[in-house]
Amino acid sequence: MTLMRITSPHAHGPMSTSRVMQNVLLATIPGIIVLTHFFGFGTLVNIFWGSIVAVACEALALTLRRRPLGFYLKDYSALVTAFLLCIALPPYSPWWLIAVGIASAILLAKHLYGGLGYNPFNPAMAGYVILLISFPIQMTAWAPPRGVGELPGLLEALQACFVPSTFDAVTMATPLDLMKQNNSLLLEDLWAQNAQFGRWAGIGWEWANIAFLAGGAWLLYQRIFTWHAPVAMLASLSLMAALFYDGGSSASGGSPLFHLLSGATMFGAFFIVTDPVTSTVSVRGRLIYGALIGALIYIIRVRGNYPDAVAFAVLIMNFAAPFIDHYTQPRTYGHRDTRGEE
């Protein structure tokens, strides 16, 4: 190896994988605080246990593949997967649910493909979908928000996670569930009859979405990702909702604001869709990718069997991302587009 002598000034790129991952972890904090405020300590316990399992799985995979442990563990990617999956899981999930989800995410969706950078599917969302298909009852058991139901304390939250048989889970349908099951009430009456609904969407959900939006905006300001995919996703979701919103009849799918502030919309838009590994690369590709995710979310939320659709929509579009990339390759600088000249 020849050592080159390089004279100053040195331009230094401060962004490394671990810096990016640390920033993403920091940006989830407002959302986690809001979730904890409205739904109790369940999310925090999820994250605590999920992180331990994630680091253990990552270490196991690295040992089996004879890769340097310290180097790969320090990139924080396993922790990011754990945070994202555990935020998406219902609070007060039992320990085995979290362990199965994290293990499938890290081992199956990430290390089977060669680790960070090679995985075609977003590990957290792959883990979530595997859990949702395998354990639908546990995965749709959301706790009632503060003010509607009794919130368990920290000790009870730990008990719910580690000794689930002794914990009486109080669950309640989420606003998206109610919206899907509703087929006779006007939206006004639906909101009046169910305490879970807040001003625009569900109690707790609207503020959690706003908090994730704030975290995402900070990441955007830090230039962790570009605006194209999230904006395209939110725009197409609002457009779909606006097109099919009829002012509040029983067949209505909910207003654009309801969809923007419900479920995992903002979390998905800024923390999942922007995954640099599994999304598309070019600007045009990202716009298409985001817009199709938004449309799929609306279609599955309103017409499909599952109440929230971010994980499914993201996984389906992850699958289509290489194809989109293939057809949206940007023109090389200085070359003409030969396809148009033929």
Binding site: L108, A109, F121, A126, V129, I130, I133, I299, I300, R303, G304, N305, Y306, A309, A311, F312, A313, L315, I316, N318, F319
Partner: peptide, 13 residues
């Protein structure tokens, strides 16, 4: 297999 899981999201459409 993972793609098949993703396509299960269309169930009920």
């Amino acid at each position: 297999g993972l793609m098949s899981l993703a396509f299960m999201g269309f169930a009920g459409l």
